[in-house]
Amino acid sequence: MSTIITREIQYTAPDGKNLVGFFAAPQSDTPVAAILVAPEWWGRNEYVIQRAKQLAEHGYAAFAIDMYGDKQTTEQASQANTWMMETFQQPNTIVERVTAALSTLAAQPEVDAARLGAIGFCFGGKVVLDLARSGADIKAVATFHGNLSTAAPAEKGKIKAEILVLHGELDSMVTLDNVESFKQEMQAAEVKHEVIILANAKHGFSNPLADVRAKANGVDLGYNAKAERAGLDAMYQLLARDLQPKPDFL
C-alpha cells in the first residue's frame, strides 16, 4: 500500500456556496492522473472519503467533493432528499458546483491536469454524468447505481469522456427502462460507453452501510459485495485504459 497524503480544500461555487472537498494523493515525484469523486445523496461523508483514499492507494489523486456546502452530511433520507432537490431548483447549480470542484482538483500541484476522470455514486452519478454532458475536459466517467436522468441530453460531439455505468439488476430507484433511455441518449450523441448490469444488486450496492440505511429509512437499498467488487474492477480497468500516461513520442 502506497503512502498517501490527504487534506481538506475549501472552494467556492458560482452561487457563493462554500464547499469543502477531501483530497487524497499518492506521494509521487511527478503529477498523477486525478479522479473527482461525487458522493451519494447523504453528502460528503466517510464513505466517499474512503473511496478517495482507495483511489490514492491505487496511484490516483482523488477529490471527494461537496455538493451541499460546508461538507454537510446526513443519515436521514428525508434530509438527503431535501438537500439534493435544492440542487435541482436552478438548472445550472449541479454543473457549476461540480465544475468548481474539477477546477480545484486540476489546480493541485500533485495533479496532471491533462489526465482527469470522475466517478459518482447514486446522486453523484448524475453529478458526474452532467459534468460530462457539459463538455468538461475529462477522459473517463464511471457511475455506481447512478441517477441517469437529465433535463439536458448529451449533444453529439460534446462529451469527451468514455462512460461506464454500473447498475444493479434489482435497482427499483433507477429502472432498467431508465437505463435503456440512457443508452439511447449515448448512442444518439455517439458517446463511447458501456453499461454493466450487475446480478442481484439493488440501489446502493457499493456501500457496505446500504442495508443499515435501508432499514433506518424504509428505502429500497442493499449492499452486494460481489457487485461492489465487479464494479470496482471495471472502474479501475476504465481508469487504467483512459488515464495512463502517453509516451512522449506519440
Rank of each mutant, 00 (worst) to 15 (best):
I5E: 14
T6L: 05
T6S: 07
R7H: 07
E8L: 05
I9A: 10
P14V: 13
D15Q: 10
D15C: 07
G21I: 13
F23A: 09
A25R: 03
S28H: 06
S28G: 11
T30F: 02
A33T: 08
I35V: 10
W41A: 14
N45F: 12
Y47I: 12
A62S: 02
A64M: 01
Y68M: 09
K71L: 01
Q72R: 15
T73N: 03
Q76H: 13
T99L: 07
A107G: 10
P109L: 09
K126T: 01
L129M: 11
D130F: 00
I138L: 02
I138N: 00
K139Q: 12
K139M: 07
A140F: 00
N147K: 12
N147F: 11
G157V: 07
K160G: 03
E169L: 06
V174C: 10
L176T: 10
V179H: 13
Q187H: 08
Q187M: 14
A189W: 08
K192F: 05
I197S: 03
N200I: 02
A201M: 08
L209G: 00
D211K: 01
D211E: 01
D220C: 09
L221K: 00
L221Q: 01
G222E: 00
Y223M: 11
A225T: 12
E228H: 12
A230F: 02
G231Q: 00
L239G: 02
R241E: 14
D242V: 11
P247F: 12
